[in-house]
């Protein structure tokens, strides 16, 4: 099986401080990788480096581009990179306000990516938007409402719909369930698990919530101080953590 994403020795420093360093891993099609760690461990820095929001100091991010094979996304030209990030990639922000256009209706938000890649038929765009709102459990009658009138959970689901509408192959998620209450979280997780499976998505999920990775991720990486301290199958790492920090992390979770 060919790799979808291959990360080699990514490092990013903020002045003298380490953001993340010596990170390497492979991601295969249909695989979900969780990145866990405490605040400041470098997981968001890593995600932003991989998604092209930050320029890493060194390393390679090889991505299997359609029809072109593995290419280093860090050396792509800007038009290519922007095209990639609105077609084949998706980025789900922790705060839906960062990923949505709050002054544009739900339908417009979902349709934006379609129009960005050249859709010019209103009826088709609207039908696709309606379909996607249904898939993320937002009532069809809310299609012309602005996201500012939506609850936090709905905004997050709308953000997911907006990102997945062009059929991406790789989704970056930065704390997708952060700031949501537990029942809404559960519903969102259920939804994401369904979508990931149905569309055969690959995903990188950054979170500090071990329950999220337990449910969604096939493999996880544990980060601390900018380094990956442990990596492996999710159940293996969570049930039998080897590194002292992983053990601390797992034992810190309250058992209800």
């Amino acid at each position: 099986m060919t790799r979808l994403l291959s990360v080699r020795d990514i490092a990013k420093t903020y002045g003298g401080r380490i953001g993340c360093t010596d990170v390497s891993f492979d991601l295969y099609p249909g695989e979900v990788m969780g990145i866990v760690g405490e605040s400041g461990s470098g997981k968001s820095t890593l995600l932003n480096c991989l998604a092209g929001h930050l320029a890493p100091d060194r390393g390679e991010v090889l991505y299997d581009m359609r029809g072109q094979g593995l290419r280093d996304t860090l050396t792509l030209s800007e038009p290519e990179r922007r095209m990639l990030s609105r077609t084949d990639w998706a980025f789900v922000h922790q705060n839906p306000r960062d990923g949505l256009r709050m002054s544009v209706s739900a339908g417009g938000n979902v349709g934006e990516r379609l129009m960005a890649v050249g859709a010019r038929h209103y009826g088709d765009i609207r039908a696709t938007a309606t379909d996607w709102l249904g898939r993320v459990e937002i009532l069809e009658e809310r299609i012309d409402d602005r996201p500012s009138s939506f609850s936090g959970g709905m905004q997050q689901r709308l953000q997911i719909a907006r990102n997945l509408v062009t059929g991406p192959r790789l989704v970056f998620m930065d704390e997708p369930t952060g700031g949501l209450d537990v029942s809404v979280q559960a519903r969102l997780l259920d939804l994401m698990r369904g979508l990931v499976r149905e569309m055969g998505l690959s995903a990188l999920i950054v979170t500090h919530d071990l329950a999220v990775v337990r449910l969604l991720a096939h493999r996880i990486m544990v980060m601390k101080g900018g380094h990956v301290v442990e990596a492996g199958l999710t159940d293996q790492v969570l049930d039998d953590p080897q590194h002292p920090y992983s053990q601390l992390l797992v034992s810190s979770v309250l058992q209800v």
Binding site: E78, P79, R82, R101, V104, S105, G107, G108, G111, E112, R113, M115, A116, V117, G118, R120, Y122, I125, R126, I143, D144
Partner: peptide, 21 residues
Amino acid sequence: KMHSLEEYGLMHVKLYEDIAR
């Protein structure tokens, strides 16, 4: 940047909003 890269999808979002409303 959007002008230089010919990224004009957003302009149609405005027209979409018009029709929707």
